[in-house]
Design a protein around this nucleic acid. Structure first.
Lengths: 225, 225
DNA sequence: CGAACTTGTGAAGGTTCTGTCAAGCCGCCG
DNA sequence: CGGCGGCTTGACAGAACCTTCACAAGTTCG
């Protein structure tokens, strides 16, 4: 599986290199540009799987960059902004940004969101998100659909991500904190009990034996045999 | 399963003690230092699993502390800062901080981030634990499941941790105090007799010859032969 | 062999964790 | 604006678990 390519367009060298270093460490193929025009050029040339884009850039600003990149082809964009301004966000989302972070933010959080975004938008020629099939159940991350013998089951976005995460490593026990970090992306924005609720919802929809409770530890997807 | 050691380097006594109290309550082994030089000294001496570090310190500042600690060996750092200053964060991340919080913050949030950071690090270089296989028995810490020829055996959390500890060094006798410290984490949270109960439970479930009693000393897992 | 001490065992009691439900909040759409 | 689906949170009951205790059984050593 070829590593995901990520373009980082950010003029402050310190933050650009911090982000690039961490993403590289996570196994991504990272390219950096430090102003608007070269950022657009970089994206058109290398066709990254995801773009991390600063809103404030020399040349022309992040919104313009975002528009031009998206004109070429749809690509997930994680936008960064210095101020916590709601209008910034609205405008940003209006031109095709998929997520949004306000500085200061933690690099960890950024990595988590990048991963969530990539999975969420997983599609296209690369068969990266192969459907998982097991126990008469089929989980298709491309179409975000769950099928079983009796028909298609409707899951909410979080339910789907949670199920996919668990099913990606059958038998392995995930702690609530781990799930919050990896499925939600934001460890602090939900309490551990929230995980229980969603597990409960999944069991109600899919049957109670699909997800095993490891008392005092967490949850695991049922193993194939 | 020794408790994680955490160093807190923070000059404001109120904040330092609040953090220390909460982390201690969560089961961590906490040490506090109130200025840069003694903070570095503390870290070099006690080699904590994680450092909570204030950016603004008497002596030399948090960045310098961070650099010196990391020079010794890589250790996750959670950085605190008083102001919501962007440059602070950038520089902080540049010198190896793994996460970043702006005062005022909630202690709860801090604890959550500490746990996420520790978990993250643990999954990294030290693969938490490989499955142990011996005597027709398989102990898999990732799945928290015990298998034997006759099928899967259900163990409670402490039973599992205890068995894994003993089985990790077959033939070696562990004292009750040692087991309390390493499995329970806190020696004083249970009496030595509690260990006996759990050993009894394990024998009942797995057969009485798996765990050998060393009279007057402790218990040991059966040697391969 | 017997006393002193250690360990095995089972059950009671209290504590913590989980399953479940419903209320409240938010964003979206009509 | 009002309804709706989805997410989070808190409350509560029930389940799972841990600790402790008492006594029986075993071990050590004089």
């Amino acid at each position: 599986m070829r590593p995901h390519a990520i373009a980082v367009i950010e003029d402050e060298a310190a933050i650009a290199s911090a982000i690039a270093a961490r993403l590289t460490k996570e196994g991504f193929d990272v390219r950096v540009a430090s102003d608007g025009p070269s950022g657009v050029e970089l994206c058109l040339r290398t066709r990254p799987d995801l773009v991390v884009l600063d809103l404030m850039l020399p040349g022309f600003d992040g919104l313009e960059v975002c528009r031009r990149i998206q004109r070429d082809r749809p690509v997930p964009v994680l936008m960064l902004t210095a101020r916590d301004s709601e209008t910034d966000m609205l405008v940003g989302l209006g031109v095709g940004a998929d997520d949004y972070m306000t500085k200061p933010f933690s690099i960890r959080q950024l990595v988590a969101r990048v991963q969530v975004l990539l999975r969420r938008v997983e599609r296209g020629p690369a068969p990266a998100g192969a459907p998982l099939k097991t126990h008469d159940i089929e989980i298709d991350p491309g179409r975000r659909v769950v099928k079983r013998a009796t028909g298609t089951v409707h899951l909410t976005p979080i339910e789907f991500d949670l199920l996919y995460k668990l099913a990606s490593r059958p038998g392995i026990v995930f702690s609530r904190e781990q799930l919050l970090a990896e499925v939600w992306g934001y460890p602090d924005e939900a309490s551990a009990r929230t995980v229980d609720s969603h597990v409960g919802a999944l069991r109600k929809k899919l049957g109670s034996d699909l997800i095993r409770t490891s008392h005092g530890v967490g949850y695991a997807f049922k193993e194939s045999s």
